[in-house]
């Protein structure tokens, strides 16, 4: 019995980190209606940044947040401004700009291969003060790094929720997401909102990267497994919904961990996609999705 409780809690911990990796994706999609295929690569960039920061300075791993998050914010901000915006302009009357998706795929390939070129294919693990530390509760073991990660996810979720609901900038972001034209007429500068949202989406990747590095390895295609999960999670939770992404992540985490206790781990992937299909049948917009998004 205690083994199953341990599994459920481990599932929630890992799941909330999956949710964290998906938040940036859902944020960008919600506003720009663009699926950012470079998402996993941006996570990878963040992980390398965090890895080098931690390894070279030897500081507490979570101090990397201070450096990596702004770094990725500007990375995303200028990527949108310089690379994506011109293409977006050309397609601005389309609700879901397809060419932009292809451009983000291009960015994905360029970033992954650039990392392969610069850092090589080897796996790197940062040795930090929380690496390998376990918290023991009634004969159950939980990795400290994942517990901190889950806590950071929760804080980020609350902050983003507050930001979108109550801040002036958040309101402008939501207005743009609801109706681009109307928002522009109200004096909101659309292109600036897009830059900011893309920057924020990437900054969320930066947070996820700093959370992952203390207990995960880093290598050039590390984003890919998270990428695939993130797509499922954001659709499951409802495209554009921040709480949906975090909850979606937790659900996937629990299915994956608990499912594996009853069957071979190979089959839990099938279980995840089966659950995903059921949700799509019953509620096509996802758990927290808006009606107009499907």
């Amino acid at each position: 019995m205690i083994g199953y409780i341990e599994s459920v809690i481990n599932g929630i911990l890992m799941g909330s980190i999956y949710g964290l990796t998906a938040v940036g994706l859902t944020l960008i999609f919600g506003v720009m209606k663009v699926v950012n295929f470079a998402h996993g690569s941006i996570l990878m960039v963040g992980m390398f940044a965090a890895y080098w920061f931690i390894t070279l300075t030897g500081f507490n791993p979570y101090l990397a947040l201070v450096v990596v998050v702004p770094l990725l914010y500007f990375f995303g901000y200028y990527m949108q401004k310089i690379i994506i915006k011109p293409i977006f302009e050309a397609e601005k009357h389309v609700r879901e700009p397809i060419t932009v998706i292809i451009v983000t795929t291009g960015i994905w390939y360029v970033l992954d291969n650039l990392a392969l070129l610069v850092f090589g294919a080897e796996f790197r693990v940062a040795q930090t003060s929380v690496t390998g530390k376990m918290v023991e509760v009634a004969e159950m073991y939980f990795p400290l790094a994942k517990m901190i990660g889950a806590g950071i996810t929760l804080l980020l979720g609350i902050y983003l929720y507050w930001f979108l609901k109550h801040s002036r900038m958040g309101k402008a972001v939501r207005a743009t997401s609801l109706d681009r034209e109307a928002a522009t007429l109200m004096g909101i500068k659309q292109s600036r909102i897009y830059n900011i949202v893309f920057g924020m989406g990437c900054a969320c990747c930066g947070v996820a990267a700093c959370v992952l590095v203390p207990f995960y390895y880093v290598y050039p295609t590390v984003g890919v497994p998270f990428d695939i999960k993130a797509f499922v999670i954001v659709v499951l939770g409802g495209l554009g919904s921040v709480p949906g992404a975090i909850l979606g992540g937790i659900i996937i985490g629990i299915i994956e961990t608990v499912g594996a206790q009853f069957m071979a781990a190979t089959w839990t992937e099938m279980l995840i996609y089966a659950f995903f299909l059921v949700v799509l049948f019953v509620k096509p917009s996802g758990l927290f999705g808006l009606r107009q998004d499907y």
């Binding site: 599994s7 890919v224 497994p225 994956e256 594996a260 781990a265 190979t266």
Partner: peptide
């Protein structure tokens, strides 16, 4: 226990 080598987390396998 077979597991997918692309798995992002293998804690479930280790618990088992």
């Amino acid at each position: 226990e077979p597991y997918p080598s692309t798995a992002s987390d293998l804690t479930p396998v280790v618990l088992k």
